[in-house]
Amino acid sequence: MVRAKGFSVEKVLDKRITAEGKIEYLLKWKGYTDEDNTWEPEENCNCPQLIAKFEEDRQKPSKNRTNQKPKIEEIEKPRGYDRGLAIKRICGATDCTGDILFLIEWEDCEELDLIPALIVNEKDPETVIAFYEQRCPLSKKAKDRMKPLSDEYANKAGVAKFAW
């Protein structure tokens, strides 16, 4: 137990690193409820013995971690094209891993999957083209520019207009 400015640290509960790279500890204060626990910067913590004990305990393997078995249903569950389902639509795309991934919605399935674009391009190129055409601002502008030409062509040729 450490006393600082009228407060006593009872226990170090957790540790985190801020976006600025500073270490903070979650402290339990003696005589206060868990609702009063606070995150304190490492330089403000005057309890080196408690921090050392916390770090030592953290290094020991927990019984819960070593004996915990993975969930079988998650391991054996098919993903992506292994489901044998058709693509309903591409909901979005990301390059968070360095490669382009598509977020895929499948027919008759509520779960979505992130699938590498290379695979989707090969297996469902028309779906990929439709996805890009929906989001391409040039596509809309081109259609808008073609509309007067198609009206003019239809009037001159005496044929029905084609719809976009």
Rank of each mutant, 00 (worst) to 15 (best):
M1P: 13
M1C: 12
V2H: 12
K5H: 12
G6I: 01
F7N: 08
E10I: 06
K11C: 05
L13R: 09
K22P: 05
E24Y: 03
E24L: 02
W29T: 09
K30M: 05
Y32T: 07
N37F: 02
E40Q: 05
E43N: 08
N46W: 15
N46C: 01
N46K: 11
C47P: 11
C47S: 09
P48W: 06
Q49I: 00
L50E: 04
F54K: 00
E56T: 03
R58A: 09
Q59E: 08
Q59N: 05
R65D: 15
T66F: 13
K71H: 10
I72S: 11
I72K: 14
E74T: 08
E74C: 08
E74V: 08
I75E: 05
P78R: 09
P78V: 04
R79D: 05
G80F: 03
G80V: 00
Y81P: 02
Y81V: 05
I90W: 00
I90G: 08
C91S: 14
A93I: 00
A93R: 04
T94I: 03
C96F: 15
D99N: 15
I100R: 12
L101W: 10
L101P: 00
E110T: 15
E111V: 12
L112P: 12
D124I: 03
D124E: 13
V128P: 06
I129N: 14
A130L: 04
A130Y: 01
Y132S: 09
Y132I: 05
E133K: 08
Q134E: 15
Q134S: 14
Q134W: 13
P137R: 01
K141M: 06
K141I: 04
A142T: 11
K143P: 02
M146Y: 15
K147T: 03
E152L: 12
K156D: 12
A160K: 15
W164N: 13
W164H: 13
